[in-house]
C-alpha cells in the first residue's frame, strides 16, 4: 500500500442549511487531509453530516465557508463547468441507491463516464468490459439494472466510478442497501482497490464496514469527534472477525 501526500484536503469546511433560527450547520469547521492511497471511513449517526461532507469533497455541493483542494487544486471556487470536468477525470462516486440508469445495460452504464470524457466508443466499451471483469460481472454486461441483484448493481456502480481512473472514489453508504454477502463482495473490491493504491473515502454507519478502512473518522453534529488509524485488513481475516460471511 502506498501512502504519500494528501490528494484531498479540506480547511475550515462549513455547510449551512436554512436561515435565521432554522439554520443548521450540517458540516461545521471541518479540517481533513486524505493522503493518496488511503481508505478513509467516515462514521456517524444519520443526519450527522457525513453525506454532506462527501458531496462537498466531490463538488456536488458548494460549501458555505472553507476550502476544498483536490490534487493540489482548490475546487470550491471552480465554476460548475470546471467542477464537472474535474469530476469527469478525478472523482468517482458510489451511492447507496446505486443511481444506475435503468434504461442502460450494465456495460452501457459503465462506459458512460468514458464517453463523457471524450473517449471513443470502442475505448469506452473496452474499459467497461475490463472493469466489469474486475468486479466479477462479465456475464452480466448486457443485463439491465432491474435484472441484477442489489450487490451486482453496486458492483456495476463501482465499475462505473472507476471508468476514468479517478484520483479518488467517494462512496456514500456503499453497502447500505446490501445484505452481508453482497457487502462482502463490495468490500473485497474495495480491498483490491486499496491494494492498487486507489484513494477511497467512504461514508458509512456500519461499524463492520468502517473497520475495513485504514482510517476512521467519527462525526457528530457536523464535526469530527474522533480520527483513528486502523490496521486496515479489509475482508480477509478481518472480514471473518467482524462477522461478514465469506
Amino acid at each position: 500500500m502506498k501512502v504519500s501526500s494528501a490528494v484531498l484536503r479540506a480547511r475550515g469546511l462549513v455547510k449551512q442549511h436554512g436561515h435565521g433560527q432554522g439554520r443548521v450547520r450540517a458540516v461545521d469547521e471541518v479540517d481533513l487531509e486524505v493522503p493518496e492511497g488511503q481508505t478513509l471511513a467516515v462514521m456517524g449517526p444519520s443526519g450527522c453530516g457525513k453525506s454532506t461532507l462527501l458531496h462537498l469533497l466531490g463538488g456536488l455541493e458548494r460549501p458555505s465557508a472553507g476550502e476544498v483542494w483536490l490534487a493540489g487544486r482548490r475546487v470550491d471556487t471552480l465554476s460548475e463547468r470546471a467542477l464537472a470536468r474535474l469530476r469527469r477525470r478525478s472523482v468517482g462516486f458510489v451511492f447507496q441507491a446505486f443511481h444506475l440508469m435503468e434504461e442502460l445495460s450494465a456495460a452501457e452504464n459503465v462506459e458512460l463516464p468514458a464517453l463523457l470524457a471524450g473517449f471513443s466508443r470502442r475505448e469506452a466499451r473496452r474499459r467497461a468490459g475490463f472493469l466489469l471483469e474486475q468486479v466479477g460481472l462479465t456475464g452480466r454486461a448486457r443485463h439491465l439494472p432491474s435484472q441484477l441483484s442489489g450487490g451486482q448493481r453496486q458492483r456495476v456502480a463501482i465499475a462505473r466510478a472507476l471508468a476514468n481512473e479517478p484520483l479518488v472514489i467517494l462512496a456514500d453508504e456503499p453497502t447500505g442497501n446490501l445484505d452481508s454477502t453482497a457487502t462482502l463482495d463490495v468490500l473485497r473490491i474495495f480491498e483490491e482497490l486499496r491494494a492498487a493504491g486507489q484513494t477511497l473515502v467512504m461514508v458509512t454507519h456500519d461499524e463492520r464496514v468502517a473497520a475495513t478502512a485504514d482510517r476512521l473518522i467519527s462525526m457528530r453534529d457536523g464535526m469530527f469527534v474522533d480520527d483513528t488509524r486502523l490496521a486496515g485488513d479489509a475482508t480477509g481475516w478481518l472480514g471473518g472477525l467482524i462477522g461478514l460471511e465469506g
Binding site: A84, R85, R87, R89, H99, L116
Partner: peptide, 16 residues
C-alpha cells in the same frame, strides 16, 4: 432529473 444528476456526477457539465 435523476439520470441527469447522475450524468453530472460522472462529469457532464450543466451546459452539456
Amino acid at each position: 432529473r435523476a439520470n441527469m444528476a447522475v450524468a453530472r456526477t460522472l462529469g457532464a457539465t450543466p451546459g452539456q
